[in-house]
Amino acid sequence: MKQGKEEKTTNQAFSDVITSRLGGETITLCYQCGTCASSCPVARITPRFNPREVIKLSLLGEKDEVLSGDAIWLCCSCYNCQERCPQKVEIADVIYALRNIAVKEGNIPNIYSEFAAELINEGRIVPISKFLEKKRPDLGLPSLKPVGVDALRKIFSITGFDKIKQEKAEAS
C-alpha cells in the first residue's frame, strides 16, 4: 500500500515536470491509440523507438528509463505523428521537452555535445571547409558574411545554454 502511494507521487512528479516544460504541455492527453506509432517512420523500422511507448512510459513515471534510454533520441522530428494525433498531443514537441530534460540531467549523446560546442564556438552547427569557402568566387558565389556568434553567446548566457557542456562534464 505504502509503496503504491509512493509510486504515485513519483509519477505525478514526472508528468508534472514534462507538462511544465515548453513543448511538453500536452502529454497527459494521450489515450494510447497508436496513431503516432503507426505514422512514425522510425518506429516502423526499428523496435528501439515507439513514440506511443515513450509517452506511456513517461506517464507511468518511468523517468530513468525514458531519460537515460536511447529512444527519445531516435525521433527524427518529422512531425508525422503530431499532425494526426486525435488528442492533439504535440508528440514531437513532447520529445523535444524530454530531450531538454535529459540534457539538463546530463544525458547528452556525444553528437549533440558536438553540436552544442560548434554552436557556441562558431555560431553554426555545420562547419564550413576552407576549401569550399575559397572556391566560392569561382562558382560565381558572393563571399560569406560574418556570423553573429557574439550575439548568440549573449543569448546563451541568459538561457544557460553555454553551461550545457559543463553539465555533461559534471555528470560523467
Binding site: 491509440c33 497508436g34 496513431t35 503516432c36 506509432a37 503507426s38 505514422s39 518506429a43 515507439n50 506511443r52 508525422n80 494526426r84 486525435p86
Partner: peptide, 19 residues
C-alpha cells in the same frame, strides 16, 4: 487507430497502416 489509408494507383487496392 489507423494512421493512414492509401491506395496503390496501379492495383487500386487499399492499404491501411495501423499499429
Amino acid at each position: 487507430r489507423p494512421s493512414e489509408i492509401s491506395r496503390d494507383p496501379e492495383t487500386g487496392r487499399l492499404i491501411v497502416d495501423v499499429e
